[in-house]
Design a protein around this nucleic acid. Structure first.
Lengths: 274, 274
DNA sequence: CAAAACTCTATACGCCATACACTCAGGTAT
DNA sequence: ATACCTGAGTGTATGGCGTATAGAGTTTTG
């Protein structure tokens, strides 16, 4: 009978959700049984155990003993939930513990402290840690966020890599460029690796059969003059699975990264000289 | 009443579809009104005009004047269709025209021909072309294929970049690593750029407001000691939109690529010397 | 105690991929 | 000519999805 009395309806703000903005307890209606934390945790568990496709509002709510619509009291949309889940699953970067002050106002590089730190090792470590996270939550790589990195953990990871590149003689702009380049390469290589790892279970085709299919396709072109370089790599056995598994992209990442860092060193050296 | 007579039912093979395997005309039933080509073309038009989300079997079939189920005579599943569409939309790489023979058996690099070609320019050109393709079909970057690169055009692009790196003193394995590294970086930077470009129309929030939100979030941490490097970049105006648009990742790609190629040069030089 | 604020549920809508059973066109073999 | 049968395309149904809307039930405030 009541003709749809519109109450003021506490609206959920996107950024508050991302930063865990602790709504100041409602104080008028029934006590909330859920929270963004619980919802995000359940969502992450589902994604870990059943994959990103299983991450639906119904499923998450069901896992918590509620209906799908109840989630919308805490999260404005599934997309926003995914944004939160993304940041939460990332977790903090490895070096987040020591909040040093590597940001001096010295623009030219040497940070004044005596011992030069091993920035290459720091970058390498950051990359390994990132890879580990992606291996633990491969579905992170299938998420398309449509929003710039704004979550606390995303920013922390960004900050960590920036700190690794800090004070070695790069301009601010160059550091940002490098960070984007490196994160991009890591993300994509981890992505293809995870895709290929998931292929057997997803398509029901065994790893061996996939290898056969690949070999078959490659034979298609090895005799043809159409793909000479590919034919050459096939012939030299570069595509054969050696000691490392078929989908291991870490060697490519390591190789590319080292060359890139060599380039960085040469770049700052050149600038110092010139 | 007929108890479901199972006919032999021409099955559609995945790889044949990808490579346009020209089914040898049925010769017994009615003439097919569709073809993989027509279907893929319609699908690409839809994705270009309405985005990847609009790419449904119903939609594609409707555009062609058929029902959704009819497509399954030509394509085993939507996933396979997407694989085909991906390869078709990629198109051939720019240098596919001249099928030179850069694959000599000379393992150490110099390819015997007199004039040294500008391999760096070739790599740069490949990257620009790849970026152009991604700009023309941004939805390509939202596709998760779950299968290794097997389409003819995917292989052709691979081949093209391999040829750029050929004969400069890298081993076969190193070339493959580099190709994966570069394609990864290009893909991901193009991806984030496209994501940020789509953000305004998708969320209804104007580019300005996004910028404001970003600035707001950054102010959250500029005063905090939590993200010193980010605060520094904010302070130095590195995040401000200069002449290039906010989502332009090309400068990052250019910068990273040049440093990487510097590293490559130094790497082969070192090997030659040592 | 009533009103207001709030949580959570039920239902419904319009999408989606695709399994299944079917009609019928149009060649081939007799 | 005619019977046959392959295979194209359709109709329907199932079970999923995100979420709009309406409202039932709970708790605190005036």
């Amino acid at each position: 009978m009541t003709p749809t009395r519109k109450s003021k309806e506490t609206q959920v703000k996107p950024l508050d959700v991302l930063w865990g903005g602790e709504r100041p307890r409602p104080a008028r209606g029934p006590r909330p049984g859920l929270s963004v934390d619980k919802i995000a945790a359940a969502a992450i568990r589902i994604a870990d155990e059943e994959g990103l496709d299983a991450l639906s509002m119904h499923h998450v709510a069901g896992k918590l003993g509620y209906t799908a619509m109840s989630l919308y009291r805490y999260v404005p949309s599934k997309e926003q939930l995914v944004d939160v889940v993304y940041d939460r699953a990332l977790g903090p970067p490895p070096t987040a513990g020591r909040t040093g002050q590597p940001a001096t106002d010295d623009p030219d590089g040497s940070d004044g402290s005596g011992a030069a730190r091993d920035w290459r090792a720091e970058v390498r470590g950051w990359v390994r840690s990132m890879l580990t996270v992606y291996q633990q939550h491969p579905w992170l790589l299938d998420i398309t966020t449509s929003s710039p990195p704004l979550g606390p953990n995303q920013l922390a990871w960004l900050e960590a890599l920036l700190q690794a590149f800090a004070g070695i003689g790069l301009t601010d702009e160059e550091m940002l460029h490098l960070v984007m380049f490196v994160t991009g390469a890591v993300r994509d290589l981890a992505h293809t690796s995870s895709e290929m790892a998931q292929a057997p279970e997803k398509t029901g085709v065994s790893m061996e059969q996939i290898g056969e299919g690949y070999a078959d396709a490659m034979r298609h072109l090895a005799d043809s003059a159409r793909f000479p370089m590919l034919a050459r790599l096939v012939g030299s056995g570069t595509f054969e699975p050696n000691e490392t598994p078929y989908n291991d992209t870490v060697p490519s990442l390591d190789f590319g990264l080292e060359l890139l860092l060599d380039g960085v060193e040469e770049h700052v050296r050149r600038r110092l000289r010139g």
